[in-house]
C-alpha cells in the first residue's frame, strides 16, 4: 500500500464521518419529539412487561398496568386517542439507551428519579407518578418492631438492584450488623423467607405490599412502617426537549389535578356545563393552556376520559379492589396527607 492510497482512504473516511456527523447534528436540531410523534401518528412508549400492577401483559396479550395507563394518557393528550401507542418492553439495562437512541419517545417503567440519572445519563425526568421507598417485611410472630431490632438477622433481597446497597448503608449508619443474602429473583427470596432461611426481606414497599397481598396467608407477614430509601418513580425522555417534556409532564399533572377538583372519567363530560372557572379552564373552555404545548386546548379532557384521574388509575391497577392492594400513603393527594400536588391549570 503506497502513501497515495492511504491518503485517499483517510480522506474518504473523514468525508464519511463528517457527513454522518452533519446528519446527526441536523437531525438532533430538528423539531421536537412531539412533531416526530405527531408525524408518525403513534406514540412509542417504553414499559416494563414483567411488573405486576405497573406494567404486564394481561391474559389477552394486552399491555396493562399503572405505568401503561400513563402511556395511554400521553397518546390521548397528543392524538385524542388512547389506543395510538406501540409498547416496547424494556429491561432495566436497556431503558436509558432506548431513549438516547430515539428508539422510544418516553419511558414509563418504574424508574427511580435520581440526580445522577438526570445529570449523567442524558435523559430528563417528568413528574413523579409514584412515591415508593424501600421497606422491610418480617413474619408476624417476629419480635422485631423496628428495623434496628434486626441486628444480626439475615435479610434477603434480590440481586442487581440498589436494595442491597440501601440495606447495607442503613446498617452501617445505625451501626447494626445485617447479614444480607441475595437471590436472583424475588420469588426465590420469598421461598427462602417461607422456609425460614431469612428473618426479613427487603425491597420497594409497593413490592412488599404486593407480595403480602398475594401470599397464601397475608396475615403471616408484617411490613414495618419505616422506609429506608426514597424511590420516586418518574417517566423520562430525551433531554433538552422542553416541548415534549411539557406534554408528558402536563399529561401526568392533569390526572392529579382532575382528582383534586373531583373530575373523573365518568363526570367529565357533564362538567362542561359547570360555571366554576377552575373546572372550565381545566376543560379548555376558558384560556388555552394546551395550546402552549402544541396540543389542543381540551387535551386534559381526552386524558381523563381515556384513563381517568389519578385515583381511578391507582385504584384500577394497585388499589384495594386489586390483588395488590397497595395503600396510597405517600401517593395520596396533598389534602389527604400524601405528596401529590399539581400546579394550577390557568
Amino acid at each position: 500500500m503506497n502513501l497515495k492510497t492511504i491518503a485517499i482512504g483517510a480522506l474518504a473516511l473523514t468525508a464519511i464521518s463528517a457527513s454522518i456527523a452533519t446528519i446527526s447534528v441536523a437531525q438532533t436540531q430538528s423539531n421536537s419529539r412531539l412533531d416526530v410523534v405527531k408525524k408518525r401518528g403513534k406514540l412509542i412508549c417504553g414499559v416494563n412487561d414483567k411488573l405486576a400492577g405497573f406494567g404486564f401483559l394481561d391474559s389477552n396479550g394486552k399491555y396493562s398496568g399503572f405505568d401503561v395507563d400513563f402511556c395511554k394518557g400521553v397518546a390521548a393528550a397528543v392524538f385524542g386517542d388512547a389506543s395510538k401507542v406501540d409498547y416496547v418492553p424494556l429491561t432495566a439495562a436497556a431503558r436509558f439507551t432506548a431513549i438516547q437512541s430515539g428508539e422510544v419517545d418516553v419511558v414509563f417503567r418504574n424508574t427511580t428519579y435520581t440526580s445522577s440519572r438526570d445529570g449523567e445519563v442524558g435523559v430528563d425526568f417528568g413528574p413523579i407518578v409514584f412515591y415508593d421507598g424501600q421497606g422491610v417485611m418480617v413474619k408476624s410472630e417476629s419480635p422485631a418492631k423496628r428495623i434496628t431490632d434486626l441486628d444480626g438477622a439475615t435479610i434477603c433481597t434480590n440481586q442487581g438492584t440498589t436494595t442491597e446497597q440501601n440495606i447495607n448503608d442503613y446498617g452501617r449508619l445505625k451501626k447494626k450488623q445485617f447479614k444480607v443474602v441475595t437471590y436472583s429473583d424475588f420469588d426465590k427470596v420469598m421461598a427462602a423467607f417461607d422456609q425460614g432461611r431469612c428473618d426479613a426481606v427487603t425491597t420497594d414497599s409497593s413490592g412488599l405490599a404486593a407480595r403480602r397481598a398475594t401470599a397464601a396467608k397475608p396475615e403471616a407477614y408484617r411490613i414495618m412502617s419505616e422506609i429506608i430509601s426514597k424511590e420516586p418513580l418518574a417517566p423520562f425522555f430525551a433531554q433538552n426537549d422542553s416541548r415534549w417534556a411539557d406534554v408528558v409532564r402536563w399529561t401526568v399533572l392533569s390526572t392529579i389535578y382532575a382528582e383534586e377538583i373531583d373530575l373523573n372519567s365518568r363526570n367529565i363530560d357533564g362538567a362542561k356545563t359547570s360555571g366554576d372557572p377552575v373546572v372550565r379552564r381545566f376543560l379548555g373552555l376558558e384560556g388555552n393552556s394546551g395550546k402552549g404545548f402544541g396540543l389542543t386546548a381540551d387535551f386534559a379532557v381526552d386524558v381523563v376520559k381515556a384513563i381517568g384521574n389519578y385515583k381511578e388509575i391507582y385504584d384500577r391497577n394497585l388499589g384495594p379492589k386489586t390483588k395488590l392492594h397497595i395503600p396510597r400513603t405517600l401517593n395520596a393527594n396533598y389534602e389527604n396527607g400524601g405528596l401529590l400536588y399539581a400546579p394550577p391549570f390557568r
Binding site: 414483567k50 405486576a52 401483559l57 395488590l324
Partner: peptide, 11 residues
Amino acid sequence: EAVRNNPDWLG
C-alpha cells in the same frame, strides 16, 4: 416471566 407477573396469577 410476564405471565408470572400478571397480578391475577401472582404466587
